[in-house]
Amino acid sequence: MAEFINFYLIPGLILGSIYALGAIGITMTFGILRFANFAHGETMTLGVYIAWSLVQLTGIKSLVPILLVLMPVSMMLTIMIVLLIDKAFYKPLRASPVIILVIASFGLMLMIRSVTQFSWGVQLKTILPGIQPRINLLDFLSFPLKHVFIVGGALLLMYAVHHVLTYTKIGKAMRAMSDSPELARLTGINTENVVMATWVMGAGLACAAGVFLAVDTQVDTMMGFKILLPMFAAAILGGVGKPYGAMAGGLVIGVAEELSSYHWIGDGPLLNPGYKQGIAFAIMIIILLWRPTGLFKGKSF
């Protein structure tokens, strides 16, 4: 039991929170700009490297100031870069067929990655070096303190997303445009502002998710790409254009990935951990076959 919770369930929830944050941006871009953004994972990686550089620059080595000070600054820098990318590469294609935008984002995925690899090299790095304190509870629960901050931070950001989408004019306009871009235009909603807000939200959350992942594991130029497929799967599972669906989808995929290698039957892992990354894909295929609109009734294209 203790093993199950400490080594499978808790890591699953951590991974799930990270996927959830990343998938919100994917699903909102999918819903509002109407395309699957392949560069989203690289946005995340870029954000992580910006944060890593800030850590080196300031010499801050402890978790709380990294999350409270450096992470927001990195989020802002990532957002600025993504807005520039939108202006240079996506905006000129706004009237093009959706699939051209997908190709453009595919190209940007490699362009951003090459910039990251050029600037920072491909060696593994760490944001939070050294051994981290653990928390022991109720005799059997044991997890690193940083997990508390990751889950807490993710919940806080998700609440912020909820607040923006429910109570602000631009947030409501984002949901409206995700429902129907055509009607949003007929209603006089300033669609360019909504597009900008979408990038701001997506890029900010991607950077945060990346920093959480980097705090939990390591900094690596492929880290964003490695979780691109799980984020897509989370967005599709939750229903495209549905931010709450993406959050739930992210948690489901994260937990499912970790639980897949638990020894449910016999002594060995149920699934070879080498195939963990395949879980997201399998869930995605099942949902596409069974209910393409996702659990939360998103768009059916």
Binding site: A173, A176, S180, E182, L183, A184, L186, I189
Partner: peptide, 29 residues
């Protein structure tokens, strides 16, 4: 719209996932 002409298309004329009140608010965007 800003000139004061409002158009209700035949289909797809509401935002289905928004509440009734949010739809009306969007009308006043």
């Amino acid at each position: 719209v800003r000139h004061g002409v409002c158009y209700v298309p035949q289909t797809g004329n509401i935002f289905p996932s928004l509440t009734v009140e949010e739809n009306l608010e969007m009308g006043a965007y």
